[in-house]
Design a protein around this nucleic acid. Sequence first.
DNA 1: CAATTTGTTAACGACCTGTTAAAAGCATAT
DNA 2: ATATGCTTTTAACAGGTCGTTAACAAATTG
Lengths: 227, 227
Amino acid sequence: MSERSILLVEDDQNLGFVVKDNLELRGFHVDWARNGEEGLSAYKNKPYNICLFDVMLPQKDGFSLATEIRGLDRQIPILFVTAKGMQEDRIEGFKVGGDDYITKPFSMEELVYRIEVFLKRTSQERQPSRYQLGKFTFDYENLLLIKEEFKQNLTQKEADVLKYFADHTGQVVKRESILKAIWGEDDYFMGRSLDVFISKLRSYLKPDSAIEIANLHGVGFKLILNP
Amino acid sequence: MSERSILLVEDDQNLGFVVKDNLELRGFHVDWARNGEEGLSAYKNKPYNICLFDVMLPQKDGFSLATEIRGLDRQIPILFVTAKGMQEDRIEGFKVGGDDYITKPFSMEELVYRIEVFLKRTSQERQPSRYQLGKFTFDYENLLLIKEEFKQNLTQKEADVLKYFADHTGQVVKRESILKAIWGEDDYFMGRSLDVFISKLRSYLKPDSAIEIANLHGVGFKLILNP
DNA sequence: CAATTTGTTAACGACCTGTTAAAAGCATAT
DNA sequence: ATATGCTTTTAACAGGTCGTTAACAAATTG
């Protein structure tokens, strides 16, 4: 992933070309998908810093696509391209988690500015910290794992590990990745320590059989949320 | 002059942008000057509710600027942004009236909290700032913690700490956040001093078992009000 | 079946916290 | 100036917590 990579999903050939071309001129790396399906599989292939979705797309619209991508990464900032006159309420509903939108027609300067602001803001803003994990609500900031009446206090490190999984729900997470992200480096003992944490988290999550931290032997783990 | 207008003088492009953008997101009006001269002429142009000056500026530094602006308005509250490790005495010397300072690096939450407290303190419509904490009434202005017949006098700092908790009831408050908000910075001894205050506050609050200042090991504290 | 990886539990020890008391600051009155 | 009374910081020590490590059982792989 380059420093500033963008996933553009736009069905209009002309607008798509112009946007991609201009953003690349300004130093962004842009992958351009023509429809929602293509966008989703591109996203699964590699991560991006920001998504730029036209709301009006054939088949899978921008909002549906956004919902699915949110399932893969709760953090990723999404900038919607909307047509003028669209009902504000529908857009507002999507402004959760730092999403934003830009209305057609727009100038390149405007778009680039919005992207810059967006990237800066999201890079230093504390990310939303409530996760829904099956029947549990995981409140990272307050180190709480809540199921109905019952509150389980977490330690900082337990919360860090669980957050890492929650941010990568359904994805394979390599031991190495978690260790580097949370412990800072990766050696045998830290690996064993991680196993102790996984064990603890599993015991916390036991009350909901729909959640599972699955091991992939020799690789890492995967947080699975069954429907 | 809008209700909450801020003059920001900051030469660092990135920090300046981020601070301006974030404060605007939170409803402040921000004018951003890149150096002292620019700041001074902006100030002459229109009045502000609060000034936010980086101490280290090219040419005219934050203190000189402050001195000149004091010549125009002896009341205006000034919040200095200082680098860590700067000699306290130099800052102290410049702290006139209600001035204060914040040490880099700081989070937006910290900055906004400081500004809010600052504005509240200096604004005419001083709100009564009474809090209901279980069976206690906490009167911040008058430094009183009252339960039925019994009145406990608080010191200013005790009241500051308790107010910080009251403003964040039920939330995890990091040691670092309290220290930066109330002491100005965060070192080992200030941390221990905070512990002494917590201990004292706990003893004051003991008569009501529904209130608890809980410790989160290695993280901070949480004021819990049980129903 | 042997080698390696993972799951689980318990013990250790570093570090963090609670509490009390003494020292240092600080403002006011003497 | 010096004393006084109050607040805050520093010190000292007792306890507690949690991440790591160890130890062993169980699972996975080839």
